[in-house]
Each structure stands twice: as structure tokens, then as C-alpha cells.
């Protein structure tokens, strides 16, 4: 790379057309800010998206970009990454795009561990189609398509990712710029499919969905920031923690004989712990940060290793030999 890039180098010349106040602006800003730190030449960065508000994202990044079809971005990205492993490929998706119409591709790209960064903007609503419930909307939600309340039981994106045995699973929040920046860096540095759920406010159709986690006055009581090797502490005064009561986690208040040494220490490499944290529902706090990270060979690298192995075993492809494989005969 000739000269260091700045945030501005990643801003495209296209007018951003999300609704004023949309959480997507914050995510775009965080990604554009983080990009220069990764030190990757712009031409080697590709953003691939599906359909939905979030999927307009590639138009606003001054890199290579491909706005594709609903739900299929992981499959399209797989074809690109496998044949061009040197590229830094990002997938932008939403809760509808990634978990409803594209659920199948998402679980398979995660289990294969294709070396992609997958950012799922979760606003628990269909925005672009103007306000229907999504696969992450809570039961009972009143929307345009559920006037009597949704009766669909929702997915947890984190649990889906863990269930598909993703090698990197994390969560952040649109307005938590510093935390989001850290998570983007972690996702970027991971080799393999890095899944980052970003809780995102849709101020038009689902405003305040994550208020507990974003309202400065109360968020500390509801956010549990996961840090590898550190005890699970939260609360405005950092006076609450999570400890095991037999096989069940519980919230405890520090003091009165309870100290940090009684609390669970977060371990990113513990899949069971990751599942347990993913199951936290009120009154438990909502974890953000890296739930799980492990090192496993990536699909794209393995594919290319097989190609290399075949080449060193059989030599480079020889078309004439290939055509004459098997029984041939000459007619004179």
C-alpha cells in the first residue's frame, strides 16, 4: 500500500438513502472508520449484500461491491472467496435477508467456515417492505402483517450461528461506536466465517426495540459486556455479576460475601458457555461482545489446498492428455 488510507477513502460518491435517524448510518460510519486500520488496499475489499435496507450498504462503500438478490449473498460470496482467496470479502445482511429467505445459505456458510466477515443488521422488523414482522420479532408483536400480534416464535441469530458451529460469533449495537469498532476489528482479524450481529434501531417501524441496551440512563443495567478472561460483571456501579447456581446461571449483587471470584469468567473458547450466554433473556442482562471464537481450517483455504495437492500430484492440467484418457483408437 502506497499511502495510509483514511475514512474518507472508503466513502463512495453515492448519496446515502436510508431514512434519517436510521441505525444503519452509525454502522456505515463505524465500518468506514475501521477500514483504514485494517491496512488492506481498497481494491482487495469486496462488500456483498442481499436485499433489504441493510443490503444497500455496498453502494456507499468505495470498494468493490455487489448488491445481489434476497438471501443469497453468502452463496455469492462463497463463489468469489473460494476462487479469489486473497480478497477481503464482507457480507452485509439483515434479520429478514439472512435468517428468513437466506437462512439456509447462512447456516451452510457458517458450518463450512468460509473466510468471510458477515455483518447481520438485526432490527427485528422488515423495513424495506414497510413494516412486517421478521424472524427475530418477538411473539405478540403488532405489525402490518400481524394486526393481532405475531404468533411466530423468533430466532436468536447468535444461537443460530452457534448451532451452525460458526467459528466466530459476536454481538454489538449500532450506537455503541467504540464497542462496534472493536468487534469489527475482531471479526476482521478472525480467519474463517466471522458472524457479527449488530442490534440496529429502525426508527420508522420498530423504534426503540433495543432501548434497554442503548438508552444511556439504563443501558448499564441491561448490557453484559463479554471480555475474554474477565468475570461477568455489569451494572452502572459494576456491582452485579453472573454466577452459577448448580447448573443454572443467576444474577448476584457483589458484596455481602460475594466477590468477583465467585463469578463466571468469560472464556471465548468454551462453546457450552457461549450457548448458555446466548440463552440469556430478561431478567438476565443481554450479552454483547465475542460469545465464541475458535480456530478451524477455512473452507476456501482447504479447497485451494486440494487444488494445489492435485497439481503437485498430477502436474498442471494437460488438455490433450485429458481428452485421450481411457480407451482411444486410431482410424487410418
Amino acid at each position: 500500500m502506497a499511502t495510509a488510507l483514511t475514512r474518507k477513502d472508503f466513502v463512495s460518491d453515492q448519496e446515502v438513502r436510508w431514512c434519517p435517524g436510521c441505525g444503519d448510518y452509525a454502522i456505515l460510519a463505524a465500518v468506514q472508520k475501521a477500514m483504514p486500520e485494517f491496512g488492506i488496499p481498497r481494491e482487495n475489499i469486496v462488500f456483498i449484500s442481499g436485499i433489504g435496507c441493510s443490503s444497500r450498504f455496498p453502494y456507499y462503500m468505495n470498494t468493490y461491491g455487489f448488491h445481489t438478490i434476497h438471501g443469497r449473498a453468502p452463496a455469492i460470496a462463497t463463489g468469489l472467496k473460494v476462487t479469489r482467496p486473497e480478497l477481503d470479502v464482507w457480507v452485509i445482511t439483515g434479520d429478514g435477508d439472512g435468517l428468513s429467505i437466506g437462512g439456509n445459505h447462512l447456516i451452510h456458510v457458517l458450518r463450512r467456515n468460509v473466510d468471510l466477515r458477515i455483518l447481520m443488521f438485526n432490527n427485528r422488523i422488515y423495513g424495506l417492505t414497510k413494516g412486517q414482522y421478521s424472524p427475530t420479532s418477538e411473539v405478540g408483536k403488532i405489525t402490518k402483517s400481524t394486526p393481532l400480534g405475531s404468533i411466530d416464535y423468533p430466532f436468536s441469530p447468535i444461537k443460530v450461528a452457534l448451532g451452525a458451529h460458526a467459528t466466530f460469533v459476536a454481538r454489538s449495537i449500532d450506537v455503541e461506536q467504540k464497542h462496534l469498532g472493536e468487534m469489527l476489528k475482531r471479526a476482521h482479524d478472525h480467519r474463517g466465517a466471522a458472524f457479527l450481529e449488530i442490534l440496529q434501531n429502525c426508527n420508522i417501524y420498530n423504534d426503540g426495540a433495543f432501548n434497554d441496551l442503548s438508552d444511556k440512563a439504563i443501558k448499564a443495567e441491561h448490557q453484559l459486556v463479554l471480555e475474554h478472561g474477565k468475570p461477568l460483571v455489569f451494572g452502572k456501579n459494576r456491582d452485579k455479576g453472573i454466577r452459577m447456581n448448580g447448573m443454572r446461571p443467576e444474577v448476584v449483587t457483589l458484596g455481602n460475601g460475594i466477590s468477583e471470584s465467585d463469578l463466571i469468567v468469560h472464556d471465548e473458547k468454551n462453546l457450552s458457555l457461549a450457548f448458555m450466554l446466548a440463552n440469556f433473556e430478561a431478567p438476565m442482562p443481554t450479552p454483547i461482545g465475542v460469545f465464541y471464537a475458535e480456530s478451524r481450517p477455512t473452507y476456501d483455504a482447504a479447497v485451494n489446498q486440494q487444488l494445489e495437492a492435485a497439481k503437485s500430484k498430477m502436474g498442471p492440467g494437460d488438455l490433450k492428455k485429458l481428452l485421450e484418457r481411457g480407451d482411444v483408437w486410431d482410424v487410418h
Binding site: 455469492i76 463463489g79 472467496k81 473460494v82 479469489r84 439456509n104 445459505h105
Partner: peptide
């Protein structure tokens, strides 16, 4: 691929890459 759609979609991605 995991299905017919991913079969063609991955090919579209590979074509994008040359």
C-alpha cells in the same frame, strides 16, 4: 452447494471474481 440456488449464486460470485 447447499441447494440449486446456492449452486448458481456461487457461480455468479465466481464470475464476478473472473
Amino acid at each position: 452447494a447447499e441447494d440449486e440456488i446456492a449452486g448458481v449464486a456461487s457461480a455468479v460470485g465466481a464470475a464476478f471474481g473472473g
